[in-house]
Nucleic acid binder design. Structure first.
Lengths: 120, 120
DNA sequence: ATAGACCTTCGACAATGGTTTAAGGTCAAG
DNA sequence: CTTGACCTTAAACCATTGTCGAAGGTCTAT
């Protein structure tokens, strides 16, 4: 499969696929005789995984670390798991932080509505 | 108060304070005879407000828009309030998104621990 | 054979949010 | 008077996450 087809099937621009390859999120594919990139079907789901993980809030370098077949930093299953666990704790503290913020802002709004003081 | 003191009191690096000034989040302070920036006490809470707002997920240009005394774009109270309310809803959906992520990651971890399949 | 749609690489550009560096002025203490 | 810790500016640099353009090769259809 050529890069353009892969792009159409996944909705990820070719420029972006090449970018991911350059940065180790996509493996370097084999080449056709003319030098064109030649992708196996499996790359479709790999791209979906990347898209999902980004939506999940992982940065590209985080994703790189836990994708198997990473051409740059290959990790053992156990490492991947502890990475994910760390991320879980991280997400948890983000949630708590946001909840505090939410309450703070609520209070600010209440104050602003009550007394005209700009107070910020 | 000199910039260094302000930095120490707020935990915001001097380089950052100057950056905020340059980008209209902090007003240009008056200067001492020697040309040093001279801040009033009120700038402490202004920096706290900026820090808080950043934590809320506002971008710097959003913050610039609702900070009073903005040297560039001043907003009315009512606008500020509705801005904050919009952001509140936003934070709420961020929290929900993170909670989904949390559950997703939990499941992935469980799966990875159960069956050896890398499955990504 | 020639147009149009692909593909290649490399380097430049963009926005965001800063930090670092270079070159220099100021101030308080020893 | 010199040292060290501050302060000034402007410009360069950094990471992140890409997009765009140039210059050129390839493939398919007419």
């Amino acid at each position: 499969m050529k890069i353009g087809e892969l792009a159409k099937l996944t909705g990820v621009a070719t420029s972006r696929i090449r970018f991911y390859e350059k940065h180790g999120l996509m493996p370097r594919p084999s080449r056709q005789d003319n030098g064109y990139r030649d992708y196996p079907e499996s790359m479709i789901s790999r791209l979906h995984t990347i898209t999902m993980s980004k939506a999940l809030g992982f940065s590209l370098s985080e994703i790189r670390r836990f994708l198997p077949d990473d051409p740059r930093e290959n990790m053992k299953r156990q490492e991947i798991i502890s990475n994910l666990e760390a991320k879980l704790a991280d997400v948890d503290s983000q949630i708590k932080r946001l909840q505090k913020i939410k309450n703070n802002v609520k209070e600010i709004i209440t104050n602003m509505k009550a007394n005209g003081a700009s107070s910020c």
